[in-house]
Design a protein around this nucleic acid. Structure first.
Lengths: 201, 201
DNA sequence: CGGTTCCGATGACAAATGTCAGCGGTCGCG
DNA sequence: CGCGACCGCTGACATTTGTCATCGGAACCG
């Protein structure tokens, strides 16, 4: 019997997934969490075999939860399920030691199979997402550029970004200009959208 | 036995919800659709009692599907389930004759109960969403302002918006300025974010 | 009919933004 | 060490933007 921890913030979806996984003979949904913190404490307490994590949880990022679980709960493998498969997220997840990465568009059968694969030490990445990740390439942004671009994400004026980043407005403009150039955008707002779509910020 | 049509683009979620609703004695998931067009043709062919529609489907908006179903399939009530409960969407849905509106954060029990409520002619709107909708108020934007703001959503420069809206750049700037003023934003990009959050565009 | 609102436009001015060149500093690497 | 990459800053310039006043036409309503 494979013990599963399921973390997903939407109650309806969580319950439905649990019911569905529970139908499998060899799977047992031992714990359900609605937040990253909850998932972490449950993992520590119950030591599941596999943690199925939503990428976007209310408090902590699913990848961060996975990292913490790997550190605290040896023997517990992790996998990520998500609605929005951005290439950058997949790379971050794999770098964090996540063993499975699936979009929510797969069938229940695939989900169950991947849980088994991951449990037995294998890996599985959705082919479509893998292709996207490869074609998207690595982020060309320097860490600071990504920072500043992220601060620009909510449409704030340069001056506010500068304050929040503790930088000169001129420097901020330079970073934004450079970032926009790298991602092929005409202005920072378009750059934000592109970088978002590729999971670079 | 209540015949249900379930429309939801994510296979995993759709399957899970179907399984979960199927567990109820008096509910029967007669049809499952992944797109709006599919949902519509299935509704016409199978005449379900209740259509449970995701708000965001790949092709058509869930509310538009509901409108079409009301026109073509008398006796079929509709309800919307969504991840992102924007106040404006709720209003649009109610105006279209949708009888139930739920976020995906509710429990399975609530979902099943609402299906029954809607089937028997009642209405149900999630209290939290209702409160948000009331506090958000109506959109202050004129139709044209909303149009132009929507075209500005992907960060395009004014000139391109003007081309796409067949307007003078000056006129576009006036609309954007006015719209930004109405929603309390410092610039159009922030305005886009605010209007998005409230479901006004 | 007059008032109001929306649409679309123009012109002008101020402010924000994008772009470029260049400077000095740190750090890692061959 | 020298080289290159990144960080942070400055100054100057062109472009884009936001803002405001103002105009005319269309539609609607009391």
């Amino acid at each position: 019997m494979i013990k599963i921890l399921l973390a997903e913030d939407e109650h309806l979806i969580r319950g439905a997934l649990a019911a569905l996984l529970g139908l499998e003979e060899d799977l047992d949904v031992t714990a359900q969490a609605a937040t990253g913190a909850e998932a972490l404490s449950m993992a520590r307490a119950l030591r599941p075999d596999v943690a199925v994590l939503d990428l976007q949880l209310p408090d902590i990022d699913g990848v961060a939860v996975a990292t913490a679980i790997h550190a605290d709960v040896p023997g517990c493998h992790t996998m990520i399920v998500t609605s929005h498969g951005r290439p950058g997220h997949l790379k971050r997840a794999l770098a964090a030691g996540v063993r499975g990465f699936l979009p929510k568009t797969v069938s229940a059968q695939v989900l169950a199979d991947v849980v088994r694969t991951v449990h037995s030490g294998g890996r599985y990445v959705d082919p479509q997402l893998a292709a996207d990740a490869i074609s998207a390439g690595d982020s060309p942004l320097t860490p600071r550029e990504a920072d500043v671009l992220e601060l620009a994400a909510d449409g704030a004026p340069v001056e506010e970004i500068a304050r929040r980043a503790s930088l000169t407005p001129g420097t901020v403009r330079n970073y934004l200009s450079s970032a926009a150039g790298k991602v092929g955008a005409a202005n920072r707002h378009e750059a934000v959208r592109i970088a978002r779509r590729l999971g670079w910020i």
